[in-house]
Design a protein around this nucleic acid. Structure first.
Lengths: 185, 185
DNA sequence: GTCTATATTTGGATAGAC
DNA sequence: GTCTATCCAAATATAGAC
């Protein structure tokens, strides 16, 4: 039995995520990742033999799980509107009230490995699909459900851009508050 | 009289802008900038003695001017709704129909020099203010004008994130089409 | 003003001891 | 599993010829 890791996998992913989120993929240097993780560079390579790409993928896997959990009410609550509202609160938590950048934004600029880009796009698509399904269950037409879900995604993501630029989460908060109406019409 | 530059200032800024927009500040390497400019690294340093930071600032100055021009109808047209519609078309052009990233997004991640961050924020603030002024002239209350302008900004920026993620400019296009209604209520 | 050549630093990645 | 030490490549920046 080998020595137990000094940082649990989920904790490690969370710490790395913070760096990738703030700095983007290319801006996230191994030095910064190492410092945030509380591990030396070589130790990071022990945990992630494929290096930075693998760290980014682990981060996105973690984000995917966190999102899946936050979206559970929207997916399962028989009261569609209540489910959307509950998920909105959880999403608010994921983004620190709207002052944290989104990895689907910061990790998808040019120069990012295709596997990483794709992973991020999958998470976004899953989020949008879930919102569209909820809108559909709420009685909207297939096409209206889809477009309103896409627009809601844009409003939330843009709200985060605004939050990063001005340190003001107003637009993000309004987007989440209005989420039920945006989706259900 | 020295030798005339092989690339005009505005052209040069445009070419550099393309790299910064796609790759972000940290991802924009001097090699990529040099290639896009059609100039050797050393020649770039002749034009921008302070290096990459100065290049980024020049790009943002250029973006500021382009935006000022695109927003002119919204600022000046006595028919407020018509002015918003005309500016929306010009903004559409600036973003290549919604498939180009926004420098206010890609150049404001962590690790970006403060002067650059600030410049980007100023452009965004100027854009939002202009939209708020138009909404105000269109008869909305001061606070409703401001929040609708912020929300419109978020919707457009988020539309660009969606465009980059999926190569689908739908949300961006809808945001611009709905811009008059978003601002005027 | 642009170029070739080079200096300097930083970043990603590996080897091997404990 | 984590560490120190090191390698190698890439990136920023400069010197000096044309």
């Amino acid at each position: 039995m080998a020595r137990p890791p000094s940082v649990r996998d989920d904790d490690l992913s969370d710490r790395l995520a913070e760096v990738f989120r703030e700095a983007g993929y290319e801006g996230a240097s191994l030095g910064a990742l190492s410092e945030a993780a509380g591990l030396r560079r070589a130790s990071l390579y022990h945990r992630f033999p494929d290096g930075k790409v693998q760290m980014a993928e682990a981060v996105l896997e973690r984000v995917e799980r966190l999102f899946a959990h936050a979206l559970q009410p929207m997916r399962e609550d028989p009261d569609v509107r209540a489910g959307i509202t509950r998920s909105a609160r959880l999403i608010d938590g994921l983004y620190g009230g709207g002052l944290l950048s989104c990895v689907m934004d910061s990790m998808t600029l040019g120069g990012v490995p295709e596997t990483v880009r794709q992973r991020a796009a999958e998470i976004a698509e899953s989020w949008i699909s879930t919102m569209a399904d909820a809108a559909r269950r709420g009685g909207r037409s297939r096409s209206a459900a889809r477009t309103s879900a896409e627009d809601a995604f844009a409003l939330v993501e843009g709200g985060l851009v605004h939050g990063r630029l001005f340190g003001d989460s107003g637009p993000f908060q309004r987007a989440l508050t209005r989420l039920p109406d945006l989706l259900l019409g």
